[in-house]
């Protein structure tokens, strides 16, 4: 089976709807098939990655720690749109620091999040074989 480029687009904030959690579940399932996986965070989707989420008082599962596990599943390309962050008054410092370990480089920890402009995001999308939207 040839390796295809899979892109999962995240455009919804967490908890208000089930889209963000469902996208994450599908990414983790898909990760078992050894494909070339990328995630895009556009619009309110950038809110999925904020650090310090605490859902104790709303009675829902806090699934934000799961993003830190993506690197272990070889999901190491998370593209975050710069304009989307700026329009919401956020910077990279407001997001979780997500890393993956590079086995070809003595298991060095490398950043999973790539901050890209809208124009660069368009190129990333253009480069995919399959796009799944959430």
């Amino acid at each position: 089976m040839s390796v295809k480029k899979f892109m999962y687009i995240n455009r919804k904030p967490p908890y208000g709807t089930v889209y963000a959690l469902e996208a994450l579940e599908v990414v983790l399932i898909g990760a078992a098939f050894d494909q070339d996986v990328s995630l895009a965070f556009i619009g309110d989707g950038v809110y999925e990655l904020t650090k310090g989420q605490n859902t104790d008082a709303i009675g829902q599962k806090n699934f934000s720690p799961t993003y830190t596990a993506l690197g272990d599943y070889d999901v190491k390309k998370l593209y975050v749109e710069k304009e989307s962050l700026e329009e919401r008054g956020l910077t990279l410092d407001d997001l979780q620091h997500l890393v993956w370990e590079d086995e070809d480089d003595d298991w060095a920890e490398k950043d999973s999040i790539h901050l890209v402009s809208r124009a660069e995001m368009a190129d990333v999308l253009d480069d995919q074989d399959i796009i799944l939207s959430f």
């Binding site: 904030p13 908890y15 310090g52 605490n54 008082a57 806090n62 329009e87 919401r88 008054g89």
Partner: peptide
Amino acid sequence: TTGHSVAEKIKNASGITFAVLGPDLQARG
């Protein structure tokens, strides 16, 4: 939250009280 166009609208809306539900704010970090 601060630092965007909506925050300006809230700042400029006189005579209206704004409140936010803490548990929902905490959930979203």
